[in-house]
Design a protein around this nucleic acid. Structure first.
Lengths: 187, 187
DNA sequence: GATCCTAACTTGTCATTGACAAGACGACCC
DNA sequence: GGGTCGTCTTGTCAATGACAAGTTAGGATC
């Protein structure tokens, strides 16, 4: 057990995050165990602590990564607000581990500087998307309310889908269902 | 430490649930410890297991109670769908511990019979509320989509508020903000 | 190319926890 | 007043998170 694996893993931080995503997808963030991650990565039980300090440190890193991935997914969706919303749902479905951690601030250090900037960057993206379509008369107030409405409907759909709370007829293709539902907001 | 407390607590099950709500409100469901609950209730560390089997058993009971309380709150809101939505948000805010557990199926036995019936009862209430206002032409399809949209926006708002993800200007009175946002869906 | 320096990782340990087994207690019934 | 069963306790075990102290090697400096 001692031999051919090099002492310095070289990429352990990244591997641990990847393995954490796997584990969370299998059993949820509550069941996450640092020692289990170490086992999957093939390192000693204390190795994760070196890179992340403690469990919440690891989840903090995951949350930051999540907000960055989400911003990226939203940017890739283009200028159509409807498609940005669909991309939000798509992100939640494809990166459910990240998503579940991001909006569970009791699991990590939500007040950490890196988290706040990552989250703020993503939020600004959403607001500007809403502002682009809210050409109504009373600008600012409308944008605020419309942002809240758009974010709520998209986030709610994603959350309910992940929780398995939706009736089976919405389950097949979440992105298609989401498109219908979000469209309802613009009708 | 041995004396005046009676051996049979008499109401332990209910007390444990109440104490669990307190603990979850303080530190989130992830940090919940059965032994800590026992300490707060003034009983031995194994007493909770007798009533709930294990941790997920306790959370299952909490979830069932939560779905019942939610149904009750929605019924009390009357026939106006907007007010039902506001009541949904109000429930989430006032019973955040229940709410947070209810939609985290990895924490409890979501497939338990009691859970499924309680959840189904609540879902039916929502659907009938939506059906009452969806007087449109193609009945069933519209009701399905409108239910999903209404539930999503309300659930999303509640979830984001609980996660502390909303910008501060939405924080003051969540129910008032929710009313604005939900109104946006009917405009 | 020897030395040092520091980041990366390991071994060892402790308090806490969830789960289980076995036993003590007492309310209720006949 | 003797059983009986649900309620609660004591005792224990493996697993976990956190921390302390030691080990290894990559790379800079001379």
């Amino acid at each position: 057990m001692t031999s051919n694996r090099p002492y310095h893993h070289g990429d352990l931080r990244r591997v641990l995050l990847a393995v954490a995503v796997e584990a969370i997808e299998e059993a949820g963030p509550a069941a996450l165990s640092l020692r289990e991650l170490a086992r999957r990565a093939g390192v000693s039980h204390a190795a994760p602590a070196h890179h992340f300090g403690d469990k919440s440190g690891l989840l903090t890193a995951l949350a930051v990564e999540g907000f960055e991935l989400l911003a990226q997914a939203m940017r890739a969706a283009g200028d159509d607000l409807l498609e940005v919303g669909v991309a939000y749902v798509g992100f939640a479905v494809r990166h459910r581990a990240h998503f579940e951690v991001m909006f569970r601030p009791d699991l990590y250090r939500a007040d950490a500087e890196e988290v706040r900037t990552a989250r703020e960057r993503t939020g600004a993206l959403l607001r500007s998307g809403v502002a682009a379509v809210s050409g109504g008369p009373d600008g600012a107030g409308d944008v605020r309310r419309n942002t809240l409405a758009a974010w709520s409907i998209v986030h709610g759909f994603a959350t309910l889908w992940l929780a398995g709370a939706l009736p089976p007829d919405a389950g097949g293709d979440p992105q298609a269902s989401a498109r219908e539902v979000i469209g309802r907001l613009f009708a």
